[in-house]
């Protein structure tokens, strides 16, 4: 015997599983599903058939979920999280670059490859990856502005460091090759490059997109 309540509970669980990162407004969807089942049953379908029609009419769950996901931008915690992410990732990047500089360029310039340097490179890569993800996710005004400022500061530090040829950390005179200084500059400019890239993409997308939702 078909148990409608049990079937709807199962449907809810499936929806929860599909939307695990962004809980969908299940109450409202369930209310809709029940209306549809009621109508289909009146038209002569069995409860099981009506449920199937109702669920099918919702369309693909992942599409609906991705539409709800876009709404996340309106959550106030999201910009705060993104901004904290930007600060943490840029601090990590800066710490990585500084550690690199300490390893290779304390009294004089002496490139060497050891475990510590590899660890530093990994740290820089992880920070860069994090910044890339953050740049893509920063869609709201607040996190875009803060991230722009962070990018400018990092690029500024990189530029300052690039032109600061002669004095080492302890003030001694040293000769640092341009490729090394350029490399550090590039790393510190990466967030800015990512930021511009993502902004550019957003502008192009905004120009091409139609008004409102992509799928209805």
């Amino acid at each position: 015997m078909f148990d409608l309540e049990q079937a709807i509970t199962e449907w809810r669980q499936q929806m929860l599983a599909a939307g695990i990162q962004t809980p969908m407004p299940l109450e409202e969807l369930e209310s809709h599903l029940r209306e549809e089942i009621e109508r289909q049953v009146k038209l002569g379908l069995s409860e099981a058939e009506a449920l199937q029609v109702g669920v099918e009419n919702f369309g693909e769950t992942h599409r609906m979920q991705s539409e709800f996901k876009k709404l996340e931008g309106h959550n106030i915690w999201r910009p705060l999280l993104l901004i904290s992410g930007w600060l943490a990732a840029s601090f990590t990047l800066l710490a990585g670059v500084s550690a690199f500089d300490l390893d290779w360029n304390f009294f004089s310039f002496h490139p060497k490859w050891n475990a510590a340097v590899f660890a530093t490179v990994c740290l820089i890569l992880v920070a860069a990856l994090g910044i890339w993800r953050l740049a893509k996710a920063s869609r709201d005004q607040a996190s875009r502005m803060v991230s722009a400022l962070v990018c400018l500061i990092l690029a500024g530090i990189g530029t300052y460091n690039f032109f600061r040829v002669e004095t080492g950390i302890l003030g001694g005179v040293r000769e640092v090759p341009a490729w090394y200084r350029g490399g550090l500059l590039l790393i510190l400019c990466l967030p800015g490059i990512f930021w511009i890239w993502c902004e550019r993409r957003r502008v192009i997308l905004a120009r091409n997109s139609t008004h409102g939702s992509q799928y209805v």
Binding site: H32, E36, G59, F68, Y215, V216
Partner: peptide
Amino acid sequence: GYAIIQEVKARSEGKLNWTDGMLYPVLHR
């Protein structure tokens, strides 16, 4: 939501057939 979809369907003589699930993200937005 349900009534909105039904009314649009009826008024367009079934030609504007929204996927049920997609109206809700639009409403929430």
